[in-house]
C-alpha cells in the first residue's frame, strides 16, 4: 500500500427522498505519473489510483478511470440522486492492488 493514503469525502448528512446531493471526494495520493526521473536519471515507476467508483445502496453513481494526468491528491465532484435512506460507498483502486474504501450514511428527512 502506498504510504499516507487517506480518503476524504463530503456528503450531506440528510436529504429528502429523490433529492440531488453534491458529493466531493479527495484522496491523498502522490499519483506518480511514470514520466518523472529521479536524481540518477532513472524513470520513477508509475504508481497511481487508476479507478474510482461511487455507489449508493449497491447502485452505481459514477465509475471513473484515472490516468497519470490526474493531479496529486485526486479530487472529484459530482451529483447523486438519493432515492431512499442508505449509504454511499466510495472505492479507490491503486496500481499496487490496494483498495481504499469509505462509507457515508445519509438519512431521509
Amino acid at each position: 500500500m502506498a504510504s499516507g493514503v487517506k480518503p476524504r469525502v463530503k456528503v450531506p448528512k440528510k436529504a429528502a427522498a429523490g433529492d440531488t446531493v453534491t458529493i466531493k471526494t479527495l484522496i491523498s495520493h502522490k499519483m506518480e505519473s511514470g514520466q518523472r526521473k529521479d536524481s540518477d536519471g532513472n524513470v520513477i515507476p508509475r504508481s497511481i489510483i487508476n479507478r474510482f467508483t461511487c455507489e449508493f445502496n449497491g447502485e452505481n453513481v459514477v465509475d471513473i478511470t484515472l490516468e497519470p494526468a490526474i493531479s496529486t491528491n485526486p479530487y472529484f465532484e459530482f451529483e447523486a440522486v438519493v432515492p431512499e435512506a442508505g449509504a454511499f460507498k466510495f472505492t479507490w483502486y491503486d496500481d499496487d492492488g490496494s483498495v481504499y474504501e469509505e462509507t457515508k450514511e445519509i438519512a431521509i428527512g
Binding site: Q35, V62, T65, A69, I70, S71, F78, V81, P83
Partner: peptide, 27 residues
C-alpha cells in the same frame, strides 16, 4: 499536448443526478 493524452473517463450510473463532474488535472 501531454506525453500521454489520456486524462480520465467518467461513466455515469443510474443514480448520477447529472452527467457532470469536476476534477483537477496535469497539463
Amino acid at each position: 499536448g501531454n506525453p500521454t493524452p489520456a486524462v480520465a473517463t467518467f461513466k455515469f450510473g443510474k443514480l448520477a443526478a447529472s452527467r457532470s463532474a469536476s476534477t483537477r488535472i496535469r497539463l
